[in-house]
Design a protein around this nucleic acid. Structure first.
Lengths: 192, 192
DNA sequence: TAGCCTAGAGAACGATCGTTCTCTTCGCCA
DNA sequence: TGGCGAAGAGAACGATCGTTCTCTAGGCTA
């Protein structure tokens, strides 16, 4: 078996378990059972649980942002594309295994205990904010930096609200708020 | 020693430890050492760790909402009072021991593992949303229910963003977003 | 003062944690 | 075919988890 296959299998199991139950609640033996790999092999590729958690978060970050980017790319650049972020969130919130933000959950658990995990979470949030900044720039808004920060707050707020309430409605509320933050000119990308 | 004193001492230690390090990362023996109480006494008042965690969350909920309400009560009812919520958040975010939302952190850790904890978190968020609804009603806004939902999203978004970034700036961004959501009439509470 | 009852501290329990080690099995090359 | 090296499963390690139990010390009553 290839190294990449092994790591993929391990992270598939780790992601499912860590995301559903939390990191601390899942032991390495449970990852072993779910992945079908031996403990020895797991520790060959991830020298400690902390490394595995970090790898889980970094892979999820790439996939999560890629899925979001892929979704909004289908809309024309500008205001619509910004709002499409919240449509994508709404779909995600409705998935049966949705359990909030994996990064915020991990940060809450291990933020003070693991610098590596905390850094991975910070980087994820910074990347998302960067992505939102690009959308804000494309929409030719007055203050793209401010809008990016505000969108980031709305996105995270919607995620945690949806997780706690158990309904995807927060995405619609956040979308409506975002609409109020973006000047609704007819063709915002042409300048004025 | 009175029962109330014992529970207070226990919860003081539990709150400090659980909030700083997370619930799962802190053992009962650590609560015992920090509180100066015996393990036996702790279990007399809290028959299990889960009960203690729930008590910690419920007491923190009361104090947190009381502190917020006390702060905004100093502003005149209406738009200013809504925005004062974010000023209070900014002060909170700047405190050295700020580590995000105790409820969201606990929910991420034990949301699927403890129904009692999950319920306490849901109730806290519902109470906060109810408080925001009262502010929205006092501000005579067009759609108070929608505004309350949006403010709740902004509040939670600001909290988690401040926790991850380590700066209180998110409160200002959320406040600016809230300003855009509230029609800036001269005296909004008079109707129009 | 003698005996009893409560409550204290913390040792100990079984389970499980992250991690390591042993022991067996299997495939490869001379 | 016989011997060797790598890799498999899972037992075992010490630590720590939540929880319970033991043992001792002290205050109250007769």
């Amino acid at each position: 078996m290839e190294n990449a296959d092994i790591e993929s299998r391990a992270l598939d199991a780790a992601e499912r378990l860590f995301y559903e139950h939390g990191v601390q609640a899942v032991g390495m033996d449970r990852v072993r059972a779910a992945s079908g790999l031996s403990l020895k092999r797991l520790y060959q590729h991830f020298p400690s649980k902390e490394v595995m958690v970090e790898a889980y978060l970094r892979r999820r970050d790439r996939r999560w942002r890629a899925a979001l980017a892929e979704h909004v790319a289908h809309r024309p650049a500008g205001r619509d594309r910004v709002l499409a972020v919240f449509d994508w969130l709404h779909v995600w919130f409705g998935e049966p295994d949705f359990r909030g933000c994996a990064f915020l959950n991990a940060f809450g658990e291990m933020g003070t205990g693991s610098a590596a995990v905390a850094e991975a979470v910070r980087e994820h949030k910074a990347e998302v904010r960067e992505f939102l900044l690009h959308l804000a720039l494309d929409a030719r808004t007055e203050d793209p930096e401010l809008l990016a920060d505000q969108l980031a707050v709305l996105v995270d707020g919607a995620i945690v609200t949806a997780a706690v309430t158990g309904t995807p409605e927060a995405a619609h509320r956040a979308r409506a708020a975002a609409e109020a933050l973006i000047p609704a000119t007819g063709r915002p990308w042409t300048g004025r």
